[in-house]
Design a protein around this nucleic acid. Structure first.
Lengths: 130, 130
DNA sequence: ATGGGGCTTCCCGCAACTGGAGGGTCAAGC
DNA sequence: GCTTGACCCTCCAGTTGCGGGAAGCCCCAT
């Protein structure tokens, strides 16, 4: 398979796939013409990466998960730990965003949004949030 | 005021303040020794920026908001529009994160997390999410 | 005068790609 | 055999919003 094929099959842009090779996540073979030659194994890994990335795992997490994926002697505890740590990061991010959302929403609600210059949003931004 | 002073007062790192000058968000004067000389006006802007950034506004949004802040002829509708657009981006982000959280949580819950290699998390990542 | 801050500029690096330039390869159609 | 277009290759620069660190002034206290 050429890069275009695995790109279509995995849904990942060819650029991304080349990047993943650059940073050592996948190691496709090469044809005599210099084209990357992907095996089923490479495609599986790309699908794995696409799904892990879509769940928000960092590239480094993905590297770890791929290693565990390929290690027959892994323990599920190791995998779970990575996932739980990531879950906590997600929760933290959600909390942050909700806090932003709340403050911002109050400001937006207080703003008339008419032709006049008077604006509680700008006022809120220019005076301390207590 | 020197950069250290406004850094302490605004809570922004000196590096960040220099960066904001680089990209034209603030325009402090210069003392004869080459040091940046910040006026109250600059400090106000830095505080404004710190608060806008903490609400998740992008630098470009901040630039727009600062312009509106300084424009006596603005309309509050213009400000509100920027804020509402940002609010929608936040909501979208929260939705994404919650979807991730849900999927990830299911996988984590299904995983024993013991010494055995069998792991639903890796299985989930290696087979299509239907 | 010497030591320790503080300030300056400049350049590199981060994450995770994306875009584009400049060029080789391959298969089909004429 | 030649061209055309769709692929593919590498390499370099840019994105966002800074942070780290080098190399070198400046200023004040001892």
């Amino acid at each position: 398979m050429n890069i275009g094929d695995v790109s279509r099959l995995s849904g990942l842009p060819a650029k991304t796939i080349r990047y993943y090779e650059d940073i050592g996540l996948i190691k496709p073979l090469r044809s005599s013409n210099g084209y990357r030659a992907f095996r089923d194994k490479d495609l599986h890994k790309l699908n794995f990466l696409a799904r892990a990335r879509s769940l928000g795992f960092s590239i480094e997490d993905c590297r770890t998960l791929l290693e565990l994926y390929e290690d027959q002697d892994r323990t599920s505890a190791d995998v779970k730990k990575v996932a739980e740590t990531h879950l906590e990061r997600i929760d933290e991010k959600i909390r942050e965003l909700k806090a932003m959302r709340e403050t911002l929403n109050e400001l937006v609600d207080a703003c008339h949004g008419d032709h006049r210059p008077d604006c509680p949003i700008l006022k809120g931004l220019s005076s301390p949030t207590q």
